[in-house]
Design a protein around this nucleic acid. Structure first.
Length: 841
RNA sequence: GCCGCUGUGGUGGAAUUGGCAGACACAAGGGACUUAAAAUCCCUCGCUCUUUGGAGUGUACCGGUUCAAGUCCGGUCAGCGGCACCA
């Protein structure tokens, strides 16, 4: 027997797969196939550091699924590509004075080498690269369609500006007021930006989650992020002091229209446009201006996180009229009201909103109770009268809205509210909205927290935005025939402090003619964000070389089974992309659906999310912590199969797991023992009787566990099976064959090698997945537990599947005579093949 | 504050529908082989008693349902994730 020379074996089979194009997917069904199956992993950003030890976890998991599905007869598409635009490459290029395209090519080469060395069964013939003009031609094409449909627009607005990257960030890229990428401070900066109207899709992005198989935590994160709330817009008339006629109407948004009788003042955002209308009416305009300036200077961080103490200025000279009771109420400006949400104005009900309450206390404003806790809740009564009454006692004593706002909607009853009195909050909402609508004073309204997607970036290494600004025609798209609009060569990629893209310095690029009128015009010099290319890449894998269309209808039809299912069957990626890439790509896909490019409104049928690989100290791996593991070292010391096995065995795939050297040693030991199976292979075309049920059970378990991402228990089952086999001192050919096929998706190299060495015929990849017989998954005899009053008192062996009466008899025999002496049997519970429990007193 | 999730040995983690808690590994201890070490193989391994047969106890905590609870229900505590001056 040769040594287990994993390096030689792994290189040998990797070369074999390359040469035979073993994993190439076709765009049609083969003779005996079960059809196409598209498995997707998030394509990586090819950084200069090479593959991170975390990358192989999702790639291996989906590789196992891909190999399993292929053996099971599917035409599997498991592709890989490169999300290669981005700042680190650009920064590296600046520092080392190398063109980013060259840096990218080098990085991709390194990533490819590493990925191949781990033995992933990617279809390399479909490799894509977002920085390839042949690819970004279609990214630009999609942008132009968005522009043509009015979903891309340019707007002057306050945006998030990363002080270190010198670039605008989308809301999704700002985490705790810091740049998602470099963690530097983010400040507000007013800039003219291209925006995409993702808000137009907000409702559909929530609704369609019902049709896809995503983890609950992913769905709830997206729903939270989109932030739907239902309420009403209510129209208040405003008057200036001393005037009798109302001069303007002010719309406010509220989720609690039921509390309208408790609205004792109004607050509008410091940026609210009405302030300009009132400039000459306000007695304290100087104070107002000062406050406006102060809030404009505050960063979002100061405005939201720190400024919990309410500040504001009363607009001296105007007031609003509460439409339900005609009460004249003061109007304030305060930065706790945001211009970007709702109408930028609220009615304040201090009795029933904690923020309004704090403001009312600070400014000594009246607090009117309009909702009171009902005495006893019906739901509580049903459960336990005593505790409900106890609760009522204790909480009635605290129920003073002068000291604290009462915000519970479920247990409230309306008071001090005229025609709403006595109603529940829920009923009052319905009634007041009807009343308002009837009088033309308001209507139901849905609002979303989701903001439009800030799409411009002031950097070089991104897709150029294919638009031209013409003094006569405005923004005009370049003809589609001119796509791709290639990135021009530049001398310097340095970002500028004034917030302009490096492209702006290139007169040859900037100055052009208007495609509509032919006059002199200027090109847009901002580029697209990193998220552009990844928003549709999965489509391109189905038709990577098509020069005429983004994807051909034939290929689309094949991979969507005639438009009856989302194109990607199973998509695995990181939780960190839930409100970024995953949301963006769903948005783009819906747009492509609306313009007829695709046939289903959702791109991914099933989404799963892997946990991170942490350092051996349990912390996130990072250079500064010095806990980074290099995959190349692991491949050298233990081999690819051991690495794959370990990353799958380390724990629950969906949870984070710390790296442990001792763990990979254990997996290597397992492979050594697998290798040693060849020492004593005996003839046999059936499983030996003593191992038969073990094999059938393991086949069933491994298949089931792969489907449900329980790779750790699948491997544990294979380890247990190996232990059983080696205990017999030999393995027969039928057993070895099955074992190698089951292990193949996890450890593809060693299994192929053993298959060859032991002359089992052909290669594993050409075999079909093993079948199991449900009837044979059971042992002939099973051990059952005999309990008395739920405590184990004896064990017995019974014939599997024997009837209950017989089981009971065997159980009683096993107990012996003394156990039940002097006791009366009350009840006998028999669970087939499991246990007997005798209840006795 | 709102929404979602999770608490099991020294460690990572197992336990279809409620049915023997701790599979499979790691670490540790003991033994075999060896001049020795590494590697490999064998044994022990939740905790507490123990006459070495076993007995009791144990899945964050308190209570409930049940013949039977890691699993279901109510409450408490701790941790993780998402949202958050979003009206």
């Amino acid at each position: 027997m040769k040594n287990y020379d994993y390096t030689a074996i792994e290189q040998k089979w990797q070369a074999y797969w390359d040469k035979h194009e073993t994993f190439k997917a076709t765009d049609c069904d083969g003779d005996s196939g079960k059809g196409g199956y598209f498995i997707l992993v998030e394509f990586p950003y090819p950084s200069g550091q090479g593959l991170h030890i975390g990358h192989p976890r999702p790639y291996t998991a989906m590789d196992i699924l891909a190999r399993y599905r292929r053996l099971d007869g599917y035409n599997v598409l498991y592709p890989m590509g490169w999300d290669a635009f981005g700042l680190p490459t650009e920064n590296f290029a600046i520092k080392n004075k190398i063109h980013p395209a060259i840096v990218t090519a080098d990085n991709i080469k390194n990533f490819t080498r590493q990925a191949k060395a781990i033995g992933f069964s990617f279809d390399w013939s479909r490799e894509i690269n977002t920085t390839d003009p042949a690819y970004y031609k279609w990214t630009q094409w999609i942008f132009l369609q968005l522009f043509k449909k009015g979903l891309a627009y340019k707007k002057e607005m306050a945006v998030n500006w990363c002080t270190s990257c010198k670039v605008v960030l989308a809301n999704e890229e700002v985490v705790d007021n810091a740049c998602e990428r470099c963690h530097s401070e983010v400040v507000r900066k007013v800039k003219n930006q291209w925006m995409l109207k993702i808000t137009e899709y907000a409702q559909r992005l929530i609704d369609d989650l019902a049709d896809v198989d995503y983890p609950a935590r992913v769905k709830s994160s997206q729903i939270n992020w989109i932030g739907r709330s239902t309420g009403a817009e209510v129209i208040f008339e405003t008057k200036c002091s001393g005037e009798t006629e109302a001069n303007h109407t002010m719309r406010v948004y509220t989720t609690r229209p039921d509390t309208l009788f408790g609205a004792t003042y109004m607050v509008i955002s410091p940026e609210h446009p009405y302030i300009e209308k009132w400039t000459d009416k306000l007695a304290n305009m100087g104070e107002v201006r000062a406050y406006q300036e102060k809030s404009a200077k505050k960063s979002d961080f100061e405005r939201t996180e720190l400024a919990k103490d309410k500040t504001g200025v009363k607009l001296d000279g105007v007031f609003a009229i509460n439409p339900v009771n005609g009460a004249q109420i003061p109007i304030f400006i305060s930065d706790y009201v945001l211009m970007s949400y709702g109408t930028g104005a609220i009615m304040a009900v201090p009795a029933h909103d904690t923020r309004d309450h704090a403001f009312a206390k600070a400014f000594n404003l009246p607090i009117i109770e309009v909702v009171r806790r009902s005495s006893v809740l019906p739901s509580d009564l049903a459960k336990n009268t005593v505790s409900a009454l106890g609760r009522e006692q204790s909480e009635l004593n605290q129920g003073n809205v002068q000291s604290e706002a009462f915000t519970d909607c479920d247990s409230g009853v309306m008071v001090n509210s005229d025609f709403l009195d006595g109603l529940s909050v829920e009923d009052a909402k319905v009634k007041i909205i009807e009343w308002l609508a009837q009088k033309g004073l308001g209507e139901p309204k849905v609002n979303f927290k989701l903001r439009d997607w800030v799409f411009s970036r002031q950097r070089y290494w991104g897709e150029p935005i294919p638009l031209v600004d013409c003094p006569k025609c405005g923004w005009v798209s370049i003809p589609e025939s001119e796509l791709p609009l290639k990135l021009p060569e530049v001398e310097s990629y340095m970002p500028t402090d004034n917030g302009e893209s490096p492209l702006a310095a290139l007169d040859d690029f900037v100055n052009t003619t208007c495609p509509e009128c032919g006059g002199a015009a200027k090109r847009e010099t901002d580029t697209m964000p990193q998220w552009a290319g990844s928003s549709w890449y999965y489509l391109r894998y189905c038709d990577p070389d098509n020069t005429d269309a983004l994807i051909s209808p034939d290929k689309l039809a094949y991979w969507t089974k005639g438009g009856t299912k989302p194109i990607v069957d199973w998509y695995n990626g990181g939780m960190e992309h839930t409100t970024l890439h995953l949301l963006y790509s769903r948005f783009w896909h819906k747009f492509l659906y609306d313009i007829g490019v695709v046939e289903m409104s959702e791109p991914y049928a099933k989404r799963t999310a892997h946990g991170m690989i942490l350092g051996d100290d349990g912390q996130k791996m990072s250079k500064s912590r010095g806990n980074v593991i290099n995959p190349d070292d692991i491949l050298r010391d233990y081999g690819a199969d051991a690495l794959r096995l370990y990353e799958m065995f380390v724990g629950d795939f969906e949870k984070a797991a710390p790296w442990a050297v001792t763990g990979i040693k254990g997996c290597k030991r397992f492979l050594d023992r697998v290798w040693n199976l060849q020492e004593n292979v005996i003839d046999g075309d059936k499983y030996r009787p003593e191992l038969r049920s073990a094999f059938h059970k393991t086949i069933k378990k491994v298949g089931h566990d792969i489907e449900t991402l329980k790779f750790n228990t699948a491997i544990a089952a294979l380890m247990a099976l190996l232990n059983e086999v080696t205990a017999t001192g030999a393995v027969n050919k039928a057993e070895l064959r099955t074992f190698l096929i089951l292990l193949n998706p996890f450890a593809p190299h060693i299994t192929e090698e053993l298959y060859e060495v032991c002359e089992l015929g052909g290669v594993v990849n050409a075999q079909t997945w093993c079948a199991y017989d449900e009837a044979l998954c059971k042992d002939n005899e099973v051990e059952i537990v005999v309990q008395i009053n739920g405590k184990v008192r004896a064990k017995a062996i019974i014939e599997s599947g024997c009837d209950k009466a017989k089981m009971l008899q065997i159980a009683k025999d096993a107990l012996g005579s003394t156990e039940l002496a002097g006791k009366t049997v009350v009840k006998e519970i028999v669970v087939p093949d499991k246990l007997v429990n005798i209840v006795a007193r």
